[in-house]
Write a protein that binds this DNA or RNA. Structure first.
Lengths: 209, 209
DNA sequence: TAGATTGTTAATCGATTAACAATC
DNA sequence: TAGATTGTTAATCGATTAACAATC
């Protein structure tokens, strides 16, 4: 356990940098400066260096960073150097959209189970995953070594599902329901609202101009 | 145009408050204090009052806020008191997931057009919207009075599609492609990365513990 | 009035930026 | 060496929190 706290904004930027480095690597670029990364990702070069400095010294003064080296460091820092098994609970509009989105797999997140309570939904296929009944939650989490749970159920069911996931050993919860969830301190919780991004846009359109 | 800048975090919290107030209203609650909202949404009560103070005085000292009144204020502030017509460009895995997700409609975002270049995708139905060819971009934006464009195309096509949208009068761009886009100052741009939420979790799992 | 809660100011905390010595 | 760029410190900026007068 590290003593200093890493700002969440830094973590999110590291993710952006890593994508950009991946792109550069595919283009055959071998070396970048913090200024290059800055221009490519829309932040300041001081920010890039500061963000990296939390984790070590990855560059060479006067020269810059080796693209593939820095990329590998970032992937390791972000915990993307392994595969994370993910369960999605709730296969309604949102849950099935998430299950169908393949961008997660590229970053090491493997959706291995999708559950629902609706008999009409159970048994349907989302890509190559079949939606299974909610009762299988504990069984699937255990046998598939699932560490991340995605909550895509209605608000009324969110806490109960979360409790079951946590009790069975899930270490992190990504909550898409509009409910403030209680989890033990050692479980990582993150709340997401898909349409908040559009709302920030509409706010800016309606208010600022 | 307001002179002071509203922190983006404030806007995102206003969105959270509005959802919570909506829930309270449905439960028949008539009055809330900043402390209630704080507990219900997981922030501090000072934060709630500070966020609201940017926009006016909505409460009564010693009493609190009227739930429906405050809700209506927030909806207005967020620009959700009207309908926004949205175009999604790109109907791949991500674009179609976004088109199928109905949560946007609840907040006033109406997806009216989905475009793609792939002949295999054009003509397929996403809910009740049919995917149409990219060539119709200008025509659809104009005739359907579209103000918000969602970029769900590969990085290589992102800037070109953005330029066409902006040129045709779209006022805001929600960019899901991993590309830093150039837009004129008056166009609102927001970059989103769906899997960054999972990456923040994996970072916390891998690094902090 | 006494109790409660807002709106707002001042203090604190944290994150970003500027600047530069270190060094390739 | 001269030029370039890192790593890091100190200065700045901005956001959150604590505290309290105003007031219902």
């Amino acid at each position: 356990m590290k003593v200093f706290k890493i700002p969440e904004a830094t973590v999110m930027r590291l993710s952006v940098y890593s994508r950009y480095l991946n792109q550069l690597a595919r283009e055959g670029v071998e070396t970048v400066s913090s200024g290059d990364i800055a221009k490519g990702t829309g932040v300041s070069s001081a920010q890039v260096r500061k963000d990296l400095a939390y984790f070590g010294e990855f560059g060479t003064r006067g020269v810059g960073y080796k693209v593939d080296e820095l990329y590998n460091h970032l992937i390791k820092i972000l915990g993307l150097d392994r595969e994370w098994n993910v369960i999605i609970v709730g296969a309604g509009k949102l849950g099935s959209a998430l299950a169908l989105y393949q961008g997660f797999a590229e970053r090491g997140f493997k959706i291995v189970t999708v559950l629902d309570v609706d008999p009409d939904i159970i048994g349907t296929k989302l890509g190559n995953i079949e939606v299974e009944p909610l009762e299988l939650l504990e069984e699937r989490v255990r046998e598939q070594n699932i560490t991340i749970g995605v909550i895509a159920v209605p608000a009324s069911a969110a806490q109960e599902v979360t409790d079951r996931l946590v009790k069975t050993g899930v270490k992190a919860i990504l909550n898409f329901s509009p409910r403030v969830l209680k989890v033990p301190r050692e479980v990582v919780l993150r709340n997401v609202d898909l349409s908040v991004n559009l709302e920030v846009l509409s706010f800016n359109l309606a208010f600022n101009r």
